[in-house]
Design a protein around this nucleic acid. Structure first.
Lengths: 248, 248
DNA sequence: GAATAAATCAAACGATCGCTTGAAACGATC
DNA sequence: GATCGTTTCAAGCGATCGTTTGATTTATTC
């Protein structure tokens, strides 16, 4: 159980066949990304993993257990990396706040690098991460919240220091917007919203990262109170409810 | 077919019972939001709609047909409103570009007002809209692209004018980030990412809108080239692939 | 009020789902 | 090489899914 991997070694030093447990996780990860968790059947997963369907319940207890493990294996290394980068930055900043650009880079770059690296071993990852936030049942959603809570807290602390005294509510909103940008960008590495683009983001990772970081950094630095908005003419933006009932 | 609604009127002027077709759409919309499209069964939908299960195929041909119609009914009025607001703004701007704040308001406020209005007739809407981008099979995704294409094109045109000569690629990225912010915000009106907030966004719609608009406006105005980023030290942000295989 | 079309219904079809079972194959230990 | 715990296997369980059918009810038209 404590072992990270069991191999049925064919040759020493050469590539070895992963254990059935790992093969199931790999196949599940890929197929969940393709079809969504609900639509993915254990039969297809185990068939493509070249494993028996009973193995799923032997190793993970249930399909939900498998889903939990797939997500955990996906999230943990990324947040571990981000937390370690935060620690580094905090150490080298001493008593000062971490520079905002560095904070933004720590948030965005680790997950995006996984998606953008040239010969990504798991090209389906962005899609799966994007799915995480919407097609997961409540049980999985609770686990995801737990996995992110530490990173969320640490990041809000540092963001508060770097921005100077701003209302906590504002910090939460800004972290929230960053999550939205990140998730949608990962979803779009495979998908139409960016189809207008004449190249895949992964082909120009530096330019893509620049776009994201610049946008987020500007948004974070902006003081919402400075915005001159007439907030009383909402009515003209309201969608007529009567239209809703109609098909045409 | 051309009729928008058929009512089995009980009393003139009073509330009338919607047709079975409409009742199915209403129930499907709500249950799709609750459980996701895949997990929602036609049996539950028709039970709660007080209709017969065969009605789904009579009216919509298949479950996929029902899903398509639910999404269409949801998206159309919003984009119609946004397009009409764009027309208004273009008319009153004459030869000048539309002011950026106005452009951002047109994009965000119509969909968010639906979610934030006090006694929303359909409190599940944000959740459904958020789901749209991830749990939809390819068929539905194609329809969504079609429904949004006109709005997307018009908005990119106006954004290009308002921002002055910027690369088209930059405009696409910025629209893309706005979509991410919007979708995640709608998803979060019911969901954990904002659970740190001590109030529901709908309780303070003006403040919430201010946060969103300010962030997006700043991000849009920012020139990505002005950002001083050292783009060669990616390695320190890379997540160690070796960690991935491990469970603990 | 008979005839025609539209809408609704109960019942069942075949397929697939997550999950369980009990035995066979495997690997380590003495 | 016998023993014991771990892993893999084929087969099947009950449940639920989307869909179809054919008859019945309701509404419309002459």
């Amino acid at each position: 159980m404590g072992d990270s991997e069991k191999t049925c070694g064919s040759g020493p030093g050469g590539k070895s066949t992963p254990s059935a447990r790992t093969r199931i996780l790999d196949a599940a990860e890929r197929i969940f990304a393709e079809q969504g968790v609900d639509a993915a059947s254990l039969r297809r997963i185990t068939r493509e993993a070249e494993a028996n369907i009973a193995g799923v319940h032997y190793y993970f207890g249930s399909k939900n257990g498998l889903v939990l493990e797939v997500y955990r294996r996906l999230i943990r290394p990324v947040n571990k990396k981000r937390l370690s980068l935060l620690d580094q930055a905090r150490a080298s900043a001493g008593e000062d706040p971490i520079p905002l650009p560095e904070l933004v880079k720590i948030f965005f770059i680790p997950p995006l690098l996984i998606c953008y690296q040239e010969h990504c071993a798991r090209p389906h990852l962005p899609r799966l991460i994007g799915r995480m936030f919407s097609d997961a049942p409540d049980l999985i959603r609770k686990m995801i919240d737990e996995e992110f809570s530490k990173m969320k807290t640490r990041f809000l602390e540092e963001l508060g220091m770097s921005l100077g005294r701003r209302p906590k509510e504002e910090l939460i909103w800004k972290l929230h917007f960053m999550v939205g940008i990140l998730v949608n960008t990962m979803l779009a590495t495979e998908f139409p919203p960016l189809s207008l683009l004449d190249h895949h983001p992964a082909e120009k990772p530096a330019q893509s990262l620049r776009q994201i970081l610049a946008f987020a950094l500007a948004g974070i630095q902006q003081d919402p109170e400075s915005l001159d908005l007439s907030m009383d003419d909402f009515e003209s933006y309201r969608v007529d409810e009567a239209v809703f009932g109609e098909a045409e």
